[in-house]
Simulated scan of single mutants.
Amino acid sequence: MEAGEFAAVAEPFRRELTTHCYRMLGAADEAQDVVQETYLRAWRGWGRFEGRSSVRVWLYRIATNACLTALGQRARRPLPSGLGAPADEPGAEATFDPDLPWLQPLADDPADTVVRRESLRLALIASLQLLPPRQRAVLLLREVLEFPAADVASLLDMSVPAVKSSLQRARATLDAARGEPLSDPASPEARAQLDAYMAAFVDTDMTALEEALRKDATLEVVPSRTWFAGKATCVPYLASVLGYPGEWAMFPVGANGQPAVVVYRAGIAFGVVLLSPTPTGLAGIVLFTGADQVDRFGYPPVLPPTAPSPAR
Rank of each mutant, 00 (worst) to 15 (best):
R214C: 08
G72P: 09
P300A: 03
C21H: 01
M206S: 15
V222K: 02
P300T: 06
D29Y: 09
L124Q: 12
P90T: 05
V263L: 14
D205E: 06
Q293N: 01
S240R: 06
Q129P: 02
P12D: 02
L120Y: 00
A94S: 10
P304I: 06
L238F: 01
A8C: 00
Y22W: 07
P80D: 05
V272S: 11
A260K: 04
F228A: 06
D195W: 14
I285L: 15
V57E: 10
E220I: 04
V263W: 06
A162W: 07
M250V: 12
R225F: 00
R191N: 14
V294M: 09
R225H: 00
D99A: 14
N256G: 08
P148W: 04
L103Q: 01
V160L: 05
A192R: 15
D112A: 15
R15S: 12
V261F: 02
P78S: 10
L106A: 15
G4E: 09
G267E: 01
L167M: 05
L25G: 02
S54T: 15
V152N: 02
P304H: 00
A162H: 06
C21S: 11
T173R: 15
V294L: 08
P86W: 07
G47N: 11
T280L: 07
Q193H: 14
A42S: 11
E220R: 05
W227L: 01
Y22S: 05
S119K: 12
P236R: 03
G84R: 12
F147H: 13
W58C: 00
L100G: 01
R171M: 12
W248Y: 11
E11A: 13
L83Y: 09
S166W: 07
F297Y: 10
M1P: 09
P188M: 05
L155C: 13
Q73Y: 07
G284E: 10
R23T: 02
S309P: 13
R134H: 04
A196G: 08
Q129D: 14
T218I: 13
D97H: 06
S187F: 12
G281D: 09
D203I: 06
Y299F: 15
A31M: 04
L103N: 04
A149K: 07
E93T: 11
R134M: 12
V263C: 14
M198L: 13
G26C: 07
A229N: 10
A8R: 11
Y39A: 11
Q129C: 04
A8I: 03
T18I: 11
R117E: 14
L79N: 05
W248V: 05
R296V: 01
V152C: 06
A162Q: 08
S240H: 01
Q258H: 06
S224E: 02
A137Q: 01
G290V: 06
E93H: 07
S154H: 13
A232G: 00
A42G: 06
A283V: 09
M1V: 08
L83D: 08
P12Y: 02
E16N: 08
R15C: 08
Q193S: 14
E37D: 14
L100A: 08
L40N: 14
A27E: 12
G290M: 01
V241T: 09
V241L: 04
A291R: 04
